[in-house]
């Protein structure tokens, strides 16, 4: 068990990062810190994907010096998935930041507990 964890330390670290980000996104009160947590969480997944996709000793899949042997290169798909994931993550972050700005303009705080209390206090119904 420990041996497996040590030999796959990158993946283990990625899952730890995912856990940190996930708990932050779930439990932190501050919206901006939640967003930071979300980015950590996504980075954890990307690290996991990138480390799984890399095989040590092999090269990027660009044919050089006429070597066409499949064993010489790594699979480019995981890297492509990481790129797609990064794009998605960036756009989600952008939307959430815009939402935070709107929330702040209205309630003058980013602490979600306070926002909720305020919202109940002024009894916004419709």
């Amino acid at each position: 068990m420990i041996h497996n964890l040590l030999s796959n330390y990158v993946e283990a670290g990625a899952i730890v990062l995912f856990g940190i980000g996930f708990t932050m996104l779930l439990f932190h009160k501050n919206l901006i810190k939640k967003l930071i947590g979300m980015n950590i969480m996504d980075t954890g997944v990307f690290l996991f994907l990138a480390s799984m996709g890399y095989i040590s000793g092999r090269k990027a899949p660009i044919i050089a010096n006429g070597v066409t042997d499949m064993e010489a290169y790594i699979n480019p798909v995981p890297a492509g998935l990481v790129l797609t994931g990064i794009v998605v993550s960036v756009s989600v972050t952008a939307v959430m930041l815009a939402l935070s700005v709107r929330l702040y303009k209205r309630y003058h705080t980013l602490d979600l507990d306070d926002v909720y209390a305020l919202s109940v206090h002024i009894n916004e119904d419709r």
Partner: peptide
């Protein structure tokens, strides 16, 4: 206001 708060929680 409520939709902004709802959107944050939903998101």
């Amino acid at each position: 206001g409520r939709t902004t708060l709802a959107a944050v929680r939903y998101m």
